[in-house]
């Protein structure tokens, strides 16, 4: 059987990848997906910890996170679409008129 720590390490790797994605990608959509990756890394951790503690609450949390992520998609995509409409681009590096 695969030890729990493996899951945790995987979750950490996924989380880091997600964070790196946010840092490195320019496309708003991809960044957004990276954030989803971070959330899912957390989910994985929850599930793994649930195993350790033998309780359900972690798994319940996962559902909440998924629901929230879905809501986030709704808001996020709406925003990204709006921006695409006005600029024909979702390159966030072009979104730098506000600075200083």
């Amino acid at each position: 059987m695969v030890p729990v720590s493996y899951y945790l390490i995987l979750s950490a790797i996924l989380f880091s990848l997600g964070a790196l994605g946010v840092l490195m990608r320019r496309n708003a959509l991809v960044i957004f997906m990276s954030i989803e990756l971070m959330l899912n890394a957390a989910n994985l951790a929850f599930v793994a910890f649930t195993r350790v503690h033998e309780t359900f609450s972690g798994q319940i949390f996962v559902f909440f996170v998924m629901a929230v992520a879905a809501a986030e998609v709704a808001v996020g995509l709406a925003l990204i679409v709006t921006i695409y409409r006005s600029r024909q681009s979702v390159d966030i590096d072009q979104l730098s008129s506000l600075k200083g």
Binding site: L20, L23, M24, R26, I92, D93, Q94, L95, S96, K99
Partner: peptide, 25 residues
């Protein structure tokens, strides 16, 4: 740092930082 990360991430695609991302950083 992003340069450093890029180097360590082994040939990840060429990356241009922008403001949002530097905030994130």
């Amino acid at each position: 740092l992003s340069d450093a990360i890029r180097a360590s991430a082994e040939g990840l695609r060429k990356l241009q930082t922008g403001f949002v991302r530097s905030y994130a950083l």
